[in-house]
Nucleic acid binder design. Structure first.
Lengths: 132, 132
DNA sequence: ATACATGCAAATCATTTGCGCAGTC
DNA sequence: GACTGCGCAAATGATTTGCATGTAT
């Protein structure tokens, strides 16, 4: 049961990961911090950030940045796209089949290797539409 | 010759816009600041940031965020996608025909309005491939 | 004249980091 | 025991903002 790259287990990291798994809200570090604090009152925000990096490097979570000034995190299980509401900032997962062939399409233009792509949709969600 | 929304002309803003127009490098505020400083030595970084916001709100430039911790700017003339090299961070414009119909595809899922989408490709550029 | 823009410096805010101690293997 | 992770607090770095003054209309 060797572990990846000298990484040791820790309660903090596990709670952070589980917390992220259990939400669909793509939260930021602060939100996760407040959440995990219920179980581990002494945890620090720095630890949250450090572990988010570790989890990201392990490929267990994804870091999202929509240019709001704060980064969001996502415990994804499979590739998917996002829809961002321009009114309320909510991020929704889109269960659209992702097209891997879309990478091939630009390979010739780029003249390099294309690993992945990211597709974000912007608009106004149904909740915000109904508010008006 | 009324101007949009009580915005007055300024040398600083014009230089910033022209500078951005003349590069394909998707620079950040700091880079623009250093560049514009050649012509306007007394300009301040704060002014650069303020004007980038103005230009963005006027729809003349676009703000990009690839989660590097700094925002990049792009004086786009038409919609296009981006390729980001994971090695050197270079951003390249992709002259691929953008698919507007791609918005329609998710409209039913989102149950809201879809204004636009953004498609970023990640990989390794030809320069970095050759370096190895 | 009046509103908008600037330069400067200080403030803010998210994120990172150094350090001495604690937990895991 | 050696190494990794933690909490705390201080540091960093990008971006924002208050203010007195300058500029465009």
């Amino acid at each position: 049961m060797e572990q990846i790259q000298g990484t040791k287990r820790s309660k903090q990291r596990e709670r952070i990961f589980v917390t992220l798994r259990r939400t669909r809200s793509h939260p930021n570090a602060e939100w996760i911090y407040e959440r995990v604090r219920h179980d581990l009152p002494k945890i620090s925000l720095g630890t949250v950030y450090r572990n988010l990096h570790v989890l990201k490097n392990q490929g267990k979570i994804r870091e999202l940045d929509f240019g709001e000034g704060t980064r969001r995190y996502d415990a994804f299980t499979h590739d998917h796209y996002h829809f961002i509401c321009e009114e309320c900032g909510t991020v929704k997962d889109l269960e659209v089949p992702t097209q891997t062939d879309i990478n091939e399409r630009v390979k010739t233009i780029v003249q390099g290797v294309v690993h992945s792509h990211r597709l974000d949709y912007f608009g106004v969600c149904s909740d915000c539409l109904n508010k008006v």
